[in-house]
Every structure is written in C-alpha cells, then in structure tokens.
Design a protein around this nucleic acid. Sequence first.
DNA 1: CGAGACCTTGATGGCTATCAAGCCGAGTGG
DNA 2: CCACTCGGCTTGATAGCCATCAAGGTCTCG
Lengths: 242, 242
Amino acid sequence: MDQMHSNALTQKLSKFMALTAAEIETLAGVAQRKLTLSTDQGLSQQGQANSAAFILTRGWAFSYILLHDGSRQIVDFRVAGDFLGLRGLLSPMSDLFIEPLTDVEVTEFQIGELLGAGTKVPRLMSAILAGIARDQAITVEHLVSIGRRGAPERTAHFFLELGARLEEAGQGRKDNYACPLTQYHMADALGLSAIHINRVLRELREDGLLTFRKGEVFIDDYDQLSKLAGFDPGYLRAKTVF
Amino acid sequence: MDQMHSNALTQKLSKFMALTAAEIETLAGVAQRKLTLSTDQGLSQQGQANSAAFILTRGWAFSYILLHDGSRQIVDFRVAGDFLGLRGLLSPMSDLFIEPLTDVEVTEFQIGELLGAGTKVPRLMSAILAGIARDQAITVEHLVSIGRRGAPERTAHFFLELGARLEEAGQGRKDNYACPLTQYHMADALGLSAIHINRVLRELREDGLLTFRKGEVFIDDYDQLSKLAGFDPGYLRAKTVF
DNA sequence: CGAGACCTTGATGGCTATCAAGCCGAGTGG
DNA sequence: CCACTCGGCTTGATAGCCATCAAGGTCTCG
C-alpha cells in the first residue's frame, strides 16, 4: 500500500512547511483510519468519546451550534484538507455539532498521537499550530463579517473565501466551483434568513457579480465582488512560528 | 512559592492542570519580562516583529479589526490572566490591532521559548493548547451571539461571560464587577450601534436585570438574565487533551 | 402522482441604524 | 474661577434593512 501518498496528515501539514523525510516518517507513526460517511451520519459524537479527530479528504461538512430557541448558527464549513472535530476536542463547547453535508471521506486519528509526534519533532508542532491558527483566523473573519458587514457584502465575502479555500484545496477555481449548500445553510452561517439570502443572491446576480445556480458558483466579476466585500485573502495564508 | 506567584506563565497554565515541580522548573526557563503600558501605547506592533506574546497581568485590553469603511469590529476583550497577542502571532491577520483599554501590566515572552518548553514536557503543551482552545471557544460563542441573538440577549450574554471570566480571574464577582468599557466599545464588540446599546442597557435596567453605571456592572437578577441570554458557561471550563 | 425539499416572490412589520440635539462631568487654559 | 472643550451618555424622530408571514413554483424521488 503506498501509504505515503495516502497519508492525509502528511498532506495537511506539508501545506504549512516542507517536511523532511524524518518528519514524514514520524507522522507515519500516527495511526490513521479511513472512514466513509453519508449525510445521515453525524460526526459530533464520533470523536468525542475516544479523543479522535479527523481530516476531511473528500466532500463537505459543517459544524454548528444549536440555541435554546431552536435556531442554528453554523460556525464553519469544512472542505477537503481541513481538520474536522479538532475544536470540539480541544475545547468543551456544548451543543456543538458536526454533520456531513455530502457523502464524505475522512481520515481519523488520535489527537494524542498527533501531538506526541509534534512533541518529538517540534517543527511538526509548529505546523499543527499553523493549521489551528488558520482555522482561527477564518473564524475571526467570519465574526467580523457578521458583526460589521451588510447582507450583500457578507454574502460576497463568504463566496470569495470559499473560492479561495477550494482552489487551494484543488477542488475548483476561485471564481467557479461546485457548492452543495442550500440557501438555508448560507442563512444560518451568515446570520440571515433564508428568504433574505435568496433576495441577496438575486441582487448579486442581476448586478453581474455572482451567480449561484444548481450547486455551482460562478463569480462573474471577481474584482468588483472583492471590492464590494472588502475581501483580502491575507488571513488565509499559512504562517509558521518557528 | 513566592517565586511561583510572580511567574505569569506558571499561573496561567496551572489553571488547566496541576503542575509538578519539574514542570514549573521547565517553565521558569522561559524568559519573561514585565512591562507596563498606558492607554496610548498600542500593543499591535509590540509583539509582531520579535515573535513576542504576552500574558495580561493587570488591567484590560482588547483586539479589533478595522474595515475599509472605517468601522471596527472588536474581537475580544482581554482581562488579567489572558493571553495577549497570541492570535496575531500564530495567524496572519491583517489589520488586527491590540490596544490597552486601561493602563496595563503585561508579561512578555517569546512564543518559541514557550513552545520549546511544551516540546520538552508534553503536559505543558497540553496546557498551552487548552488555553488556546478556551480562547477559541470564547470567539465561537461570540460569533453565535452576533449571528443569532437579538440585541438584548446578546448584551446580556456579553456581561454574563465577562462576569464569569472576571470572577475566575479574581477580579470581582460574576454579578458585580468593575468594567472600564464605554458604550462605544460594547457596540463595536456586539455588532450594534452605541445608541442602541444605550437603549438596551436602559431596558435591562428597567427590567431589573442588569445595571451598568459609572464603570461598574451590577447583575440584579442573575437567573433571569441567564435565562434571557441562554447563557451556559460550559464553554469557559478548561479541558485538557492528554 | 403525491410528497417533500428547496427556491422564489410579494406584503408587512419590527428591530436597529442613522440623524439630530442636548446633557453631564472632567480636564484645561485664559 | 470660569468659560471652553471634549468624551461619553441620553433621548427623540425617522428611515431602512432584514425578519416574518404567506403563497406558490420547481424538481426529484418513491
């Protein structure tokens, strides 16, 4: 089995730095198990019990929090190459759920083992932290969007970020990618109602900026849309600390 | 013992687990420098250049992002015992600023040295990650608040969280604490206008739930306010991974 | 063909921003 | 000592963004 190429952790961490043979070797010592899950199988409980986290290798997933009144806030969408379930493992968020959005393929590993590898090889720890930090930057930018951008700007920013992340993951182009979200998902992620999302999408389409149709996003005028959203992809860049 | 108490890192990490003598010894090897800063001295640039981060030991600070249109989103307020400047160091957020809100006392350290200590003693790394994860949980809860709670609920939640954090830091009681924020700060943190914050505060006061007056918060009916906000402090609990 | 999930559009209303004005207290300088 | 300024707080009036309610359309699938 050509385990090297199929090693999701190696692929993930090498995005943040060039890994040496020794580092790859160390990572290979972290047991990984590939799983395939379909839409109806929640991921929330999968990891919690046995301290397992995942790397998403195919498909989309999302994490969300349910409020007492039944409303839902989607915290983030996860695509190929993203960590999954790490946040809930490291911090005790109650009512944090993770669900596949499409059929997904994930690679499971023990968080303790990964950190053990990082302890043996500090550069690996640096890469792990870079991954965590990038996710945090995405969350912060999300917070800014909801807090201080109007609905059209917010929506525009959302699709621009997704495009940038998907292109980086080799899952499409930043201005044209498959997107399995419903308008209800977008609404719960962006803090809007689905009805209003619908109107905003129409407006963006009529303005020749962005078209969302049948699970596909076309960004018709990338520059104008970026300008509208105030989108600066700097926060998606990797950065390592030592 | 006295030495322990003067070591900000030891104090911080011991919140997440009981530290052994050997672990305290290792932490003592991380150089720390105490600084005092006043309101007009930004902290943003202080760390970036030389990879320094801080622990806030006295006073309040806050981090925020400036948008192109001049509006501001405050990401979080930091109080005694909190990490400061770690996020900007680990991830490349542009336009992320940190400012003291009062005169502050901070303990500076090199992030590389701290992680070095964590590499030598895995349990320390676990505590560091627990600290990072807690901050992340706070950010996520903030996101939920802005995305899916109305202005009164959001404001209530905000003061309840602050109270819980301050009490834990030994800076007051969860239902009565000093709070140097202006209504403009609250507005930019909560995604509202200062004018509306003012009206919400009046409403909460008239309902006998919470009083904010001259830099002091009184929570008049803790249970009712918690119920209104849907506040569940679970996300503030520490949690270690191994 | 019926059901269900999702999308679309119109009408209405409410929550919150914005504009405008004034108040208060603290610091400052004439 | 007192006007002056400035930051912060307060309140009223108006407007607009977006939620909600209602209804119907389209598509897929059993």
